[in-house]
């Protein structure tokens, strides 16, 4: 029973990792941009949730409605003003610029909110749980987080493969020059992709703020989890990133059970094993 519990916890946390990963995969897929500041933007979303709840007195989970549009707007602006200028033949400028952005965000948060660890209080839902079977209880909040993650991933999958919006993303990803011949303005398409990416991690950021302690320095680790989930899942479909997130989450949970110090190590090992055996990931992009 104990192991069932552990696996379930791992699966549920995997949903969160999948949201980190989906945001990364989306912008890499559309514009080949590796966003080193991704983790810090997640933390920024958590702090925006903190400010929203403190100033508006909103329930933290309701803060999502405020944080998502704010992060989307930041994403659109960031891409139009800064990141579009770094894109080109050379892959190095966007890496360097987002690395710099990561440092700036961390230090700005440190300056504004100090290094103290913070947490959002969501009330009684935090400790509520449902009995799944004899000896196995499932927390309402982790379950909600997972359900929201699946809904977000499913929504992205639908958007990407069933809507005009997604068609524009895929066309731009295939061939930027020809996409412009179809009347698509790359700069706008890229900014929309970044807005969507940050909207997704805004949801993740709010859940982090409610479920765990956070401080300005936790971003880079979230970036690593996102990367690992993307690589485990492969770039073929959004469901692949969900699978990647779950595998990472379960590996970490199993590692932590064996030895509390092995949580991160076990996740990294699972990632390395998949990278060695199946470098294209479990659900690779089918090449035409």
């Amino acid at each position: 029973m104990e192991w069932v519990n552990i696996i379930i916890q791992g699966v549920l946390i995997g949903g969160l990792y999948a949201m980190f990963a989906a945001g990364l995969a989306l912008i890499f897929g559309v514009m080949r941009l590796v966003n080193i500041a991704h983790g810090d933007l997640i933390v920024l979303a958590a702090y925006i949730a903190l400010m929203t709840t403190e100033t508006l007195g909103l329930n933290p989970l309701l803060a999502i409605i405020v944080v998502v549009p704010i992060m989307a707007a930041i994403g659109y602006g960031l891409q139009r003003v800064l990141l579009n200028r770094t894109l080109g033949e050379d892959v190095l400028p966007p890496l360097l610029v987002t690395f710099g952005l990561s440092v700036i965000i961390q230090n700005a948060l440190l300056e504004l909110f100090s290094a103290d660890s913070r947490r959002l209080r969501a009330g009684s839902i935090e400790v509520a749980s449902l009995p799944l079977m004899e000896g196995v209880w499932i927390g309402v909040l982790p379950l909600l987080q997972f359900v929201v993650a699946v809904a977000v991933i499913g929504g992205l999958q639908f958007l990407f493969y069933r809507t005009a919006f997604g068609r524009a993303f895929r066309a731009t990803s295939d061939d930027q020059t020809v996409a412009q011949l179809m009347g698509l303005d790359n700069r706008h398409v890229f900014a929309l992709a970044m807005a969507l990416s940050l909207a997704v991690i805004a949801v993740a950021g709010v859940f982090i703020a409610v479920r765990t302690n956070f401080d300005p320095a936790i971003g880079p680790a979230r970036l690593i989890f996102g990367f690992e989930a993307v690589i485990i899942g492969g770039l073929g479909s959004m469901w692949g990133t969900l699978a990647g997130g779950i595998i990472l989450g379960v590996s970490q949970a199993i590692g932590a059970q064996i030895n509390p110090g092995w949580q991160l190590l076990a996740g990294h090992l699972a990632f390395l094993v998949i990278l060695a055996l199946r470098p294209e990931g479990l659900f690779p992009k089918v090449k035409g």
Partner: peptide
Amino acid sequence: VPEGRRLFSSLSVEENLLIGGQL
């Protein structure tokens, strides 16, 4: 109509046509 056709390889035939008409 670009040289070498340059269709969007991850889009179906109909999606290629639809994106041409997206304006």
